[in-house]
């Protein structure tokens, strides 16, 4: 902008419209900080459980007002009563422990196989050649489709159930661990070798810790799949466990007990999720990654 100044007066001041907008940052006052914390708490008082709890409350309201027919959907309170009465008859706890044992055993096998094979394949090309094809094939076959085969091979006993869960858990562990090891920065491996670290040192201090975030993602899936495998295995030819309980409830048209079984599976899933979150908080404190805003 060119201004022609004819007199000896000061040049005209820049019009207000041309002053650039500014932002001012100062520390939050104690009060507004408290308000902000309350707002944040109000937005999600129970963290990730806020929405599930809210849904349960809505569900109860819908049932109590008669909007949901009790023949189709039991209300949360009814489910709670079903749990109490089954518990008092001593029928609930044995089924839960049976299911937990199955998924625990399956997970243990799946974790072991997945970690061993995934580590070998991540570290050595030969391992990749040997395992990855097979795992990819298994990955695309639905667990439910394998179940009849398992029963033919291993009978209707515990083996087929545990092995089905193990298969479900192995695949995500293997895939995630393998790609996590291969995803470790080659520059870090080179640095460690150049610094004089031996093969073992490179594995234990660079590759495996570097692959931990990816492994935990695999673990999260493995835990979820083990619950899925549990459902699949227990719905067919079981005489105990939560799936069996659901089947029985279906026979006697006890909708509340069917829901109870589903709720127990859901709680297992949430617990597994929480477990991995704790692991991440403990083992991944070093991560400079984004935490969400």
């Amino acid at each position: 902008m060119s201004t022609l100044v004819l007199t000896g007066h000061a040049p005209p001041r820049t019009p207000a419209a041309e002053v650039p907008e500014v932002e001012v940052f100062s520390p939050l006052s104690h009060r507004s900080a408290t308000v902000a914390r309350l707002v944040r708490l109000g937005r999600a008082p129970l963290g990730i459980y806020t929405v599930p709890v809210l849904l349960v409350v809505l569900w109860q309201v819908a049932s109590s007002t008669g909007w949901l027919s009790p023949n189709l959907a039991a209300s949360p309170v009814q489910i709670w009563h079903a749990a109490q009465s089954l518990w008092q008859q001593g029928l609930l706890w044995p089924d839960i422990t049976k299911s937990l044992t199955r998924s625990g055993e399956g997970l243990a096998i799946g974790l072991t196989v997945g970690v061993v094979a995934g580590t070998i394949a991540g570290l050595w090309k030969l391992g990749d050649t040997l395992f990855t094809g097979v795992v990819s094939v298994i990955n695309t076959i639905p667990l439910l489709a394998i179940l009849p085969l398992m029963i033919v091979w291993f009978g209707i006993g515990e083996e087929s159930k545990v092995l089905l869960i193990a298969m479900g858990a192995t695949v995500p562990i293997y895939i995630n661990l393998f790609s996590a090891i291969r995803g470790v920065d080659a520059g870090l491996v080179e640095m460690a070798r150049a610094a004089g670290a031996g093969r073992w040192r490179v594995i234990t201090r660079v590759l495996l810790p570097g692959a931990l975030p990816g492994f935990l993602i695999g673990l999260r899936f493995a835990l979820a799949y083990s619950v899925l495998g549990l459902v699949a295995a227990e719905q067919v030819n079981a005489d105990s466990g939560i799936g069996f309980m659901i089947n029985q409830a279906q026979t006697y048209e006890r909708v509340d007990q069917i829901y109870l079984g589903i709720v127990i599976y859901a709680v297992l899933g949430l617990t597994a999720h929480q477990f991995v979150r704790v692991l991440e908080r403990v083992f991944l404190t070093w991560r400079p990654s984004y935490n969400g805003s």
Binding site: L188, M191, A192, G198, R205, V206, P209, G210, W286, R287
Partner: peptide, 25 residues
């Protein structure tokens, strides 16, 4: 012999002193 790279190449999952001992046995 030892090498210092342009990028420090520190292992983010090891504390500073563990980074220093990576090649030390």
């Amino acid at each position: 012999r030892a090498i210092v790279f342009q990028n420090p190449r520190l292992l983010p999952w090891q504390r500073v002193w563990r980074n220093v001992t990576i090649g030390l046995d």
